[in-house]
Simulated scan of single mutants.
Amino acid sequence: MFQALPILLVAVGVARATLNGACTIGSTPGTCISTSTCSSGGGTYASGYCPNDPADVKCCYKTSCGSGGNCRWTSQCTTGNTASELPAGLCPGPTDFNCCLPASSCIPKAVNSATITLIKQYEGFVASPAPDPVGLPTVGYGHLCQTTNCGEVPYSFPLTTTTATQLLNSDLKTYTKCISDYVKDTIKLNENQYGALVSWAFNEGCGAAQTSTLISRLNAGESPNTVASEELPKWVYAGGEVLQGLVNRRNAEIALFKTASGVISQPPC
């Protein structure tokens, strides 16, 4: 169906856009980004809809994301139920071009204070955008910049620990959503098990979590504590090398995962 779109749209005109700005292919919203970024994010691009930008910047769209969602600009998501995935996005492009999901009354649980403390400890606080240990620009408590100078962050720099915490809580909604989506509702996880997985996904990305042996083993009904003990230690590499910081973080996540609690966070409803 979409192969015919470019021919159809030439007849109705081309909407001009800027880099990371909005573009439209028929009734399908998109964003003007590089073709490589579009492809790596699972999108499809079409030529001729971002004429003010360099040749490798094209209108990128993605019509399916998450559980029954579509990639839309936040302002266009009429359900108000959006999910983004950082650093590997459900939708390619800027953070306000994300996955618009069907309306749902079942909201993933927020993580507990023990999880927040763990994440803050291992992410560290960065008041203004700066490269992390592998060279990626971050700010606050592990927020990966999506635009130049982290322009998508709604707080002024340098951040305070208060605004950085607010940013972290906002970012974590993405990862509570993906863990809640990826782990079957038949699998019960307490608040510490759930929080440890959210910390891991925040560090490694929802895409990695979704395809991981860890999630598949949990969904197969194996003992959660056994799975965490055997699978989390595998996630200690960056750039092909073992990082001691990741070793330490995985050990802390395992310790949190194994901390008993009577509070169930997964499934959320």
Rank of each mutant, 00 (worst) to 15 (best):
Q266R: 15
A17P: 11
P51I: 08
T78P: 04
C91K: 05
A4F: 14
A260C: 05
T211M: 09
Y122A: 00
V134P: 01
A238L: 02
C178D: 11
P87W: 07
G68F: 07
N98C: 09
P87L: 08
R72T: 14
G26V: 03
P133A: 10
G26C: 07
F2A: 09
N149C: 07
P268T: 15
T79Q: 10
Y61S: 13
E191M: 10
D56S: 09
I254P: 01
V111F: 03
V111W: 07
N251Y: 00
L189G: 06
S170H: 12
V134M: 02
R250T: 00
T115C: 08
G13Y: 12
A238V: 00
V247M: 04
D185Q: 13
G68Q: 11
Q166G: 00
T213M: 09
V12D: 12
S229H: 06
L197V: 08
S180T: 14
N70P: 00
E152V: 13
G124F: 03
I119V: 12
T74F: 08
P51A: 09
T18N: 15
A164D: 01
S34V: 07
P29L: 11
T176N: 03
C91W: 08
T24S: 14
Q146M: 10
P108M: 14
E191S: 12
K120R: 07
S216W: 06
Q244H: 01
T165P: 00
S216M: 14
L232N: 00
G41N: 09
Y141P: 04
Q244W: 00
I107C: 06
K188R: 15
F257L: 06
V12N: 11
D53G: 02
P51G: 10
G140M: 13
N149H: 15
P102M: 05
T176Q: 12
P267C: 13
L90Q: 05
P54L: 05
S47D: 12
P137S: 12
N81S: 04
L136H: 11
I264V: 15
Q121H: 14
G240P: 02
L189Q: 05
L136Y: 11
K62R: 15
T213E: 12
L214W: 02
N20V: 03
E152N: 10
W73M: 13
T259H: 14
L197Q: 09
G66F: 11
E230I: 02
G21A: 06
C71A: 07
L218I: 13
E191Y: 03
Q210W: 14
A196C: 10
G80P: 08
L232I: 12
A88M: 08
N219R: 06
Q244Y: 01
I25F: 04
Q210K: 15
C91A: 08
A208N: 15
K234A: 04
G239S: 01
V227S: 07
S156K: 15
A130K: 08
C71P: 10
K62T: 10
A55G: 07
A110L: 13
A164S: 04
E191N: 12
L5H: 11
S229I: 06
G69E: 03
P233V: 00
A164V: 01
A46R: 11
A103C: 01
C23Q: 02
Q3V: 12
N52I: 07
C23A: 04
E85C: 02
T174L: 13
V247Q: 05
I215H: 01
N52D: 13
A17R: 08
V183W: 06
W73H: 11
T162K: 00
C150N: 13
P133N: 09
I187Q: 13
C59F: 03
G140R: 10
N190S: 04
